[in-house]
Design a protein around this nucleic acid. Structure first.
Length: 598
RNA sequence: GGCCUCAUAGUUCAAGGGAUAGAACAGAAGUUUCCUAAACUUCAGAUUCAGGUUCGAGUCCUGGUGGGGCUACCA
């Protein structure tokens, strides 16, 4: 069925031709939804068409309105307000629209088939020297949700994680553990593995700083002291040993990384996110060297006198970029060139999306440029989805100084808050403990995920641990609560054995609040597609919020089960049930689960 | 210095170049013998500044101010 909007657009084009002899394109038709606070369903903005009609806005709108009403039977009436042509759609149309969608599973989502494009989405990408914090939470929730959105838009999606498991930062934790660890293990002291390793990282930094201070007090410059402090020299020595495959170093590295992975898995599980494949940088970090050598041979790259290799990007308005150090070792960029090449060989993707913070915009710009320079046509299939930092009231988080909001702590605190609020309301008093715990968890995660995902990814967001996350208002629990109430109504209907059949009846009288709900639902398929293209979970969050507010108004003012007219009762129940499913499915795209009661 | 980015009520967020800039929290005032009051209803409150483009600008362009980021032989 052709969408009504498309019909109106098409007929408007015909109307412009018939009335004014103007051949306009359908893209020139400014059709939009009528503002909520005004009467009407669709609005045609006639101002841009005046240059063709050569008449006043009112005259043009009147003539076009008459033409549309005559040609499209669903248009019952029209009205002209300040030069805007407001079209009224018959209730019968909305009723019919509902009948066509209410039984459809996964409303608005596009089914996959063999010709679907393939997307690789890389996200999370943690360092193994510290536990996950609030910044990672934003990354993980975004990456996961965007994956679901893209899939709902009809693409095949591979979710991958590239773990940064090697480098000087891990050596720092290893050094600290060796020197001051007393052979502590997660089991022996009962602390999560990623937390222990992070604590040693902070401990290293503490000693390192005090060494620098001592050296500076003895007359050394700050810069020199930072390079000559014994701790950092030790860490560098350890990295060299690691690269030479020194058995003792490798074994410690493996042991500590295992601790971290176990800890990460637990946090990922609590966040409800997953990956199709995990890559480790220790296995990929040398991959780019061959590409660089080849680029050198083909004259795309340059080697300097000291042996270092560079890409000259000055022609693109950027600087030169180092790709191989003078000692022949590779850098971050080299490894990303390699992994990109490997991924394309592996997946032949139509698009690869990197979910990485906006401080790396330059890096990814350079990455694409260099691949392009090296002659890889797929360089334009890489896309960096950059998101803003999460800031605390006191400013940026700094993991070295331990100034972070830890992911596990935050989740635990959220769950505790959900429990307190739930108990105050007392609605779950007669529930078994394990069911209660599950509900608290769902509410807590609903609040946290919604809080983060409703914000436009691009923007820096502020997080105030004490005030930020509410359970009332524009929040996840607000949406969950609406879902729960609908489920309750449906349960009651079944318990009472009410006849709740719904079948399309063109004469069914609709309340304006019911029509409002249907109009909102009508916009969803297009909105979902847009959200998938723009990689914006926030668009879905805002849509669901609007839908839920409208439903609550409906629920508050219009009886469902108490309605005596059976046709109306059946319709309202079917509508409510559809909205509940729709809420559940669209919130799942954000990774948010609904409780059945709360 | 150069480049990128953001700026909307007291606060946290919305607004595909379109009508009177929406919400929530905080503030003020109401609604439970009735489908879950984590709800609903009402009041009060904002586009950083100066130009420009346009029939029309929070949105696009130029400049100023302010915040954040990048500009490593770290990742």
């Amino acid at each position: 069925m052709l969408r009504l909007e498309d019909r109106i657009t098409q007929v408007t084009v015909e109307g412009m031709q018939a009335l004014y002899g103007a051949g306009i394109d359908s893209k020139q038709v400014p059709l939009q939804r009528t503002r909520k606070d005004l009467n009407g369903d669709f609005t045609l903005v006639v101002f841009p068409l005046l240059r063709y009609s050569k008449k006043s806005p009112e005259e043009t709108a009147t003539e076009l309105g008459g033409f549309l009403q005559e040609k499209i039977e669903e248009i019952s009436d029209f009205e002209i307000v300040k030069g805007f042509l407001n079209l009224y759609v018959s209730n019968e149309y909305w009723s019919q629209f509902f009948a066509s969608v209410f039984a459809a599973p996964r409303y608005g989502q596009v089914q996959l088939d063999d010709s679907s494009e393939k997307y690789v989405i890389e996200y999370s990408s943690p360092n193994t020297n510290k536990p996950l914090h609030l910044g990672h939470i934003r990354n993980n929730l975004l990456g996961f949700s965007v994956s679901r959105l893209v899939k709902a838009g009809g693409k095949k999606v591979e979710m991958v994680n590239l773990v940064n498991d090697r480098g000087i930062h891990i050596c720092k934790s290893m050094i600290a553990w060796k020197k001051w660890g007393d052979d502590a293990t997660p089991e022996s002291i009962g602390i999560k593995g990623d937390r222990i390793v992070g604590d040693f990282y902070v401990l290293f930094d503490k000693h390192y700083r005090s060494e620098i201070k001592t050296l500076v007090d003895n007359g050394m410059s700050e810069e020199e002291a930072a390079k000559k402090a014994p701790s950092i020299l030790e860490a560098q020595e350890m990295l060299r040993k690691w690269e030479l495959n020194d058995p003792e170093t490798i074994s410690l590295w493996e042991k500590m990384n295992q601790w971290v992975y176990k800890g990460f898995d637990e946090t990922y599980r609590k966040l409800g996110i997953s990956f199709d494949k995990i890559y480790y940088e220790s296995q990929t970090y040398k991959l780019g060297k061959e590409l660089v050598e080849e680029g050198l041979k083909n004259g795309h790259l340059i080697r300097k006198d000291d042996g270092s290799v560079w890409a000259d990007l000055t022609g693109d308005g950027l600087d030169e970029k180092l790709l191989l150090r003078s000692d022949g070792t590779s850098v971050y960029m080299t490894q990303d060139l390699g992994t990109a090449h490997q991924r394309f060989a592996e997946y032949k993707f139509d698009k690869q999306i990197y979910v990485v913070g906006n401080e790396q915009i330059y890096h990814f710009k350079v990455l694409s440029l260099i691949l392009n320079k090296l002659g890889y046509a797929w360089s334009d299939k890489l896309y960096h989805l950059s998101y803003g930092m999460v800031e605390l009231p006191e400013g940026k988080m700094k993991s070295r100084e331990g100034k972070v909001v830890d992911a596990d702590d935050l989740i635990a605190e959220m769950v505790a808050n959900a429990e307190v609020i739930s108990q105050e309301l007392g609605k779950l008093d007669d529930f078994p403990e394990n069911e209660k715990a599950d509900i608290y968890y769902r509410i807590a995660m609903g609040a946290l995920k919604y809080f983060i995902l409703k914000v436009d990814p691009q923007k820096t967001m502020l997080f105030n641990p004490r005030e930020s996350i509410d359970f009332t208002g524009n929040t996840g629990p607000f949406i969950q609560y609406t879902y729960v109430r609908i489920r309750s109504v449906v349960r009651k209907a079944k318990e009472k054995g009410l006849n709740v059949d719904y079948s399309f009846d063109k004469n069914l009288e609709l309340d304006p609040r019911e029509v409002n709900l249907l109009k909102t639902v009508y916009t969803y398929p297009e909105l979902l597609q847009d959200a998938g293209k723009q990689l914006s979970p926030a668009m879905i969050a805002n849509y669901v919020y609007e839908l839920v507010k409208e439903f609550n108004t409906f629920y508050q003012h219009i009886p469902i089960l108490k309605e005596a007219d059976l046709a109306k009762r059946g319709f309202r129940l079917a509508l409510s049930n559809f909205i509940a499913n729709h809420i559940q499915e669209s919130m799942l795209l954000l990774g948010i689960e609904m409780p059945e009661r709360m």
